[in-house]
Write a protein that binds this DNA or RNA. Structure first.
Length: 433
RNA sequence: GGCCCCAUCGUCUAACGGUUAGGACGUGACUCUUUCAAGGUCAAAACAGGGGUUCGACUCCCCUUGGGGUCACCA
């Protein structure tokens, strides 16, 4: 099948997650058919269009790994291309110059002469859809003979770019009738339409720019991996035939079909995104993961953070969970302040805690600190004999100064033998006071 | 309000006339366990309502209800 798709954002706001999914599906479909997607900025509204928004969209696409044909088009740069078509419509009587333009009284707006018919088109996702165009009246298609408006520009661009499939949000469903009307007046062939369901906010309404984290860039800042975010986006409104929930971009391409896109809107569930992101974090190769952690914790002592990393890896969902590292695992970076009342825990008393810590100190002096297991092996029999709670709580507390922390074997491994023994001594001194 | 689209657990979804209506996230319990997580096991949780069609409807048709979109010289 011959396929050419396009992603036509209007640079009037930051890259929205709904737009990102539209881009993704257009990319997937094109790629699936050995074709490419075209990026086209719909910036006929010069007042609202900003280059900073273009930049945001471009960098967002790059972040997500969605590629497109190298030649990017802008409607603002194609103004002269539209003129002959407007002239043609005027000439054939399909359109006429009407009242003065709102912005400029010297110019006349161009209205499309509505034939008042019924337009029926077949949507790849929804089947046949019909509209009676009568209520559209004679709608305006250009501010003047040289300033086309959205519907006209889209139709001409899609024709010139030989777009075969228009995959866009459901919010464009009722726009389609206008565009088909123009298309027919111009004698253009119809593309295949596919109107995707909308991504809904937690109140089930359209995810607007006012909603929290509606921009792609928000997710980069929140510390999500682009692969995970993209994967989640794909799942909102599409289920691959394999039923897989975790799939790479290439796997998506292989499985993608328009007919598998859903019809109804889907709420964005941050919790599931977090879960998926953790899955991606967990499967990262060790060196890559360490590298990311290092870059994101540059203010901390890397020697220590590096040792902490394997334990942290199990516990984070997004990179931003790393922000709390110094707080959450402060005891790794600096000796804790101990509360004498907390040292013993609830399974023993101060006397017992002191006895156990003393004994643990002896055992750990000759133990291997190679890894958490080796530390565990050194003290496990003793702890089991004396009561694990009675032995291990004082140890863990002596090392962390926290009622909640990593397990004592992990902490000991991270700290190393010297610091571990030192902290046990400190705790003992406090107990003896 | 007119027009259009949509309707399965709280959420994302599977089912394409015949299933104890399945899975995932989340939630709860239990387990593991020195704490907190993670892990393991189990559980609760849905076909919006009403009519048809059919031997048989989550699946097909109609109506109602509900939700959403759209009605610019924005895109």
């Amino acid at each position: 099948m011959h396929v050419i798709t396009r992603f036509p954002p209007s640079p009037t706001g930051f890259f929205h997650i709904g737009s990102a999914r539209t881009a993704l599906f257009n990319y997937l479909f094109a790629k699936k058919h050995g074709s490419t997607m075209h990026l086209r900025f719909e910036d006929t509204d010069r007042d609202r269009s900003k280059t900073e928004y273009e930049d945001d969209i471009i960098s967002g696409l790059a972040w997500l790994g969605i590629s497109y044909a190298p030649e990017v088009t802008r409607q603002s740069e194609r103004l002269e291309k539209y003129r002959p078509y407007i002239a043609k419509l005027l000439e054939s009587g399909a359109a006429y110059e009407a009242e003065p333009s709102e912005g400029d009284p010297a110019k006349k707006a161009v209205r499309f002469k509505n034939p008042n018919t019924t337009i029926t088109f077949s949507d790849a996702i929804r089947g046949d859809v019909s509209f009676d165009t009568t209520e559209l009246k004679d709608f305006v298609i250009a501010k003047s003979v040289e300033e086309p408006l959205y519907h006209l520009a889209v139709v001409i661009d899609d024709h010139d770019m030989e777009i075969t499939h228009v995959i866009r949000g459901e919010d464009h469903l009722s726009n389609t009738q206008r565009q088909i009307l123009i298309m027919e007046a111009l004698g253009f062939a119809r593309p295949v339409y596919a109107h995707m369901p909308l991504i809904l906010g937690s109140d089930r309404s359209k995810l607007s720019k006012r909603n929290f984290a509606a921009s792609v860039n928000d997710y980069r800042i929140l510390g999500y991996k682009p692969e995970a975010f993209l994967n989640y986006l794909a799942l909102l409104g599409w289920t691959p035939p394999s039923g897989k929930e975790k799939l790479s971009l290439d796997e998506m391409v292989a499985e993608f079909e328009l007919s598998d896109i859903h019809k109804s809107g889907a709420m964005f569930d941050m919790e599931k995104l977090k879960w998926l992101n953790r899955e991606y974090l967990l499967e990262m190769p060790e060196p890559l993961f360490e590298d990311e952690v290092r870059q994101r914790t540059s203010t901390l002592d890397w020697e220590m953070t590096k040792k902490l990393t394997p334990f942290v890896r199990e516990r984070i969902h997004t990179w931003s969970d790393l922000k709390n590292l110094a707080g959450e695992y402060g005891y790794c970076y600096a000796p804790p302040t101990l509360d004498p009342k907390e040292i013993s825990g609830k399974n023993t008393d101060a006397e017992g805690a002191a006895r156990h810590l003393e004994e643990l100190g002896h055992m750990l002096k000759t133990a291997s600190f190679e890894n958490a297991d080796s530390v565990k092996t050194a003290v496990w029999d003793y702890a089991t004999k004396e009561g694990r709670g009675a032995v291990l709580w004082p140890l863990r507390y002596a090392l962390s100064g926290r009622t909640r922390s990593l397990d004592p074997f992990a902490i000991a491994t991270i700290l190393g033998k010297e610091k571990t023994l030192k902290r046990i001594d400190v705790a003992l001194d406090i107990l003896k006071e």
